[in-house]
């Protein structure tokens, strides 16, 4: 009973937040609504005992991705009237994309279990009694190890590409070279001069 009530509460919050993401006038409010949507869906995942997924969603999307999002949105000076201009014109296309997405969802749910890897193999890996996370890890690193490694390599490539595309070293910026600072010796900076402490001409 209580679980059902909690589910409907979080589901309602999720839908409300998702609507706000597209309808809010202020882009910062939109980004924050997206945060709320992520958080509510994480709560829904916790409810079906997928605690690893739920917490990972909060950790990755709420804790890191959306912070960077907000960061950028906060600094932009977005003209809202320009953004709203083509709303009616693009509406049919948007509705079409939405419908396709709903259809895809229905197909996935209707198809039941997607049979990518023989089921008994997965069951064998998950046979050891243990918690959700241990199970996930044991399947991920045995049955699905190659797709997993492939995904890791793709991500690494994406990181490197993103950095290479955006990082330009400007010549005119002041830059601290820590290695050079550490390498300096006393002789590089200091010259000892021997001279008499008094001169006759002064007196």
């Amino acid at each position: 009973m209580i679980e059902k009530a909690i589910f409907y509460f979080f589901a309602a919050v999720l839908l409300l937040a998702a609507t706000l993401v597209v309808t809010a006038r202020n882009p910062v409010h939109s980004a924050l609504s997206l945060v709320l949507a992520f958080f509510s869906s994480a709560a829904l995942w916790l409810l079906i005992e997928a605690e690893f997924l739920g917490i990972a969603l909060v950790l990755v999307y709420v804790g890191a991705v959306m912070v960077l999002f907000l960061f950028v949105v906060m600094m932009l000076d977005i003209n809202l009237s320009v953004m709203r201009e083509g709303f009616a014109r693009y509406l049919p296309l948007g509705v079409l994309v939405g419908l396709v997405m709903v259809l895809q969802m229905l197909l996935v749910i209707g198809a039941g279990v997607v049979d990518l890897v023989p089921e008994e193999q997965v069951a064998a890996a998950g046979a050891l009694d243990g918690n959700n996370i241990r199970l996930l890890g044991s399947v991920l690193y045995t049955v699905y190890v190659y797709p997993f490694e492939l995904a890791a390599i793709v991500l690494l490539l994406a990181i490197i590409a993103a950095i290479m595309l955006t990082h330009r070293r400007r010549g005119d910026t002041k830059h601290q070279d820590i290695a050079a600072q550490v390498r300096t010796r006393k002789a590089d900076r200091l010259r000892m001069v021997r001279m008499p402490s008094e001169r006759d001409s002064d007196s």
Binding site: F52, A56, V58, G63, A64, N132
Partner: peptide, 20 residues
Amino acid sequence: VNAGLLYVLAMTSMGVYGII
């Protein structure tokens, strides 16, 4: 909870929203 350490990480990572 079993995912205690992850939970703590997730919670502490949310603290930055208040500041921003």
